[in-house]
Amino acid sequence: MRKHGWLGVYAVAYLVFLYAPVLLLPLFAFNDGTIIAFPLKGFSTRWFEELWQTAAVHRAVENSLYVGLATAVISTTLGIFAARAGARYAFPGKRGILGFIMLPLVLPEIIIATSLLVVLVQLGFGLSLGLVVLGHVLLCLPFSISILNASFQGFDRNLEEASQDLGESALMTFWRVTLPLVTPGIIASLLISFTISLDEFIIAFFLTGTEPTLPVYIWSQLRFTAKLPSMMALGFLLLLFSLVLLVTAEYFRRRSRARASGGDPSGGMM
């Protein structure tokens, strides 16, 4: 029992360590002082008002929304193909091909960013948000695939076969049977890719032109002491937003798992 106690104490201490920076965020976001230091000066929402009145923040939010949405859609679409191939078919070189697509998971982001920069500029593209999307898709694809794999792997193939036996074409079967079954996984993948894109800095830093995404904008403001409190407010809002997205994603991911395991894969015709 004593060992349990020590481990429990450690676990709580570790959680404090994990949450330390995050807990400071709301403290300084609502602090009525111009410097980021203790003691706190009192409650104020003026930093949120300042954010609201800064046009550059609105632009950055729009840019990030655009990049995040485009990334989420493309990454999830490509992820569906890869997860489907991985779960449904056996073919020579499968592990190598899928492994290569998952590679960005372990590559330092600066390598992805610089290599994309080199190739896209050589091809004559000007730096733009579109290029950021291309890079973000590369980064998000492994996450989309892992989430979608779980949806595709478990589900009852007999449902698809039944649909085809009843005369539906392969495409219609996918549309009417497969897709609805994996929808929770798709939603989870969209939300996670969006969240990753929203927070990604390095690739955006290298590839964005004159239009900054939110992290690139925050980076440019961190140099100015006067801007810091409103950046804390922005960070706090971003945290809340990400949390809502993640809780939603988690909800759908669980539903997708529940659905996947609902149909007994070994039952039926076997």
Binding site: L18, P21, V22, L25, D199, L214, L222, L238, L239, S242
Partner: peptide, 11 residues
């Protein structure tokens, strides 16, 4: 354990 890591990395 994962919640704190969805704050902006920069911040």
């Amino acid at each position: 354990i994962t919640i704190p890591f969805w704050t902006s990395y920069l911040l």
